[in-house]
């Protein structure tokens, strides 16, 4: 569905992404794991057009999207749940969901119902300002907001960051559920254990390069991954 080839990105004066290639097949959950500063976020931000690449290619369903602006990329069915959630603090929960569907002109009722069924807490708090939610609820809202655009692929930048282990488990369960509904997932994580257990495919990024790849299971059993990311 998304095919990245020989992507190089300079960001903040450094070469953040150095000639990486990977693929996200339709219907799968693919994860990109790695430490801070490995270039994971930059990769996602480049796919959405927020960051300009130096060279390479990003194809979405066969179409080159590198160099297009964010709004036109998003309108093709790609969505990003950004790092740090970035919900709109002074819009209500319901407005945050509606703004997620900004490009749509059809009825939102059904989608709002679906998001509420995934995250009942959001329904209870639909009138509250986004900024008054707890961290976990904000993450739910960020995911719900992304789903409102009816994405074909949802990219998530560290959804587990700063959340309690129980909440993290909930979020990952819901990621799987969203995937079952036909949404392809590209997940970035430092929480390698959770990510690899959830993902079909995994890539390990280190200082701007992809150093390992394989199925989630293979990577979980890989001794280098175990040592570096799983603490064993």
């Amino acid at each position: 569905m998304i095919k990245v080839e020989n992507l190089c990105v300079n960001y903040g004066g450094i070469e953040a992404v150095k000639d990486i290639s990977f693929e996200v097949p339709e219907g799968e959950i693919v994860t990109l794991i790695g430490a801070n500063g490995a270039g994971k976020s930059t990769t996602l931000r480049t796919i959405t057009g927020l960051v300009k690449a130096r060279s390479g290619s990003i194809k979405y369903m066969g179409e080159e999207i590198l160099g297009k602006d964010t709004v036109s990329i998003v309108s093709k069915g790609i969505t990003l749940v950004p790092e740090g959630r970035r919900i709109f603090p002074d819009l209500t929960v319901l407005e945050n969901l509606k703004v997620g569907a900004y490009l749509r002109k059809d009825s939102l009722e059904e989608d709002i119902e679906w998001v509420y069924s995934l995250f009942p807490r959001l329904q209870e708090r639909h009138w509250q300002l986004g900024g008054t939610l707890s961290g976990g609820e904000q993450q739910m809202l960020a995911v719900g907001r992304a789903l409102m655009s009816r994405p074909k692929i949802m990219m998530m930048d560290e959804p587990s960051l700063g959340l309690a282990p129980l909440v993290v488990k909930d979020i990952f369960d819901i990621i799987k559920e969203i995937n079952k509904r036909g949404v392809t997932i590209l997940l970035i994580e430092q929480n390698a254990n959770m990510a690899l257990h959830t993902a079909d495919q995994g890539y390990v990024m280190e200082t701007g390069r992809i150093t390992l790849s394989g199925t989630g299971k293979e990577l979980l059993e890989n001794s280098a991954v175990k040592e570096a990311y799983l603490g064993k």
């Binding site: 927020l50 709004v71 309108s75 950004p82 819009l91 703004v99 900004y102």
Partner: peptide, 23 residues
Amino acid sequence: TKIGMAMRASSKDFETSRLMGIN
């Protein structure tokens, strides 16, 4: 209104607003 919502969203965060498809 929708444009009003876009204004309030943009006033907080240009980048995330763009991710929502807001021009």
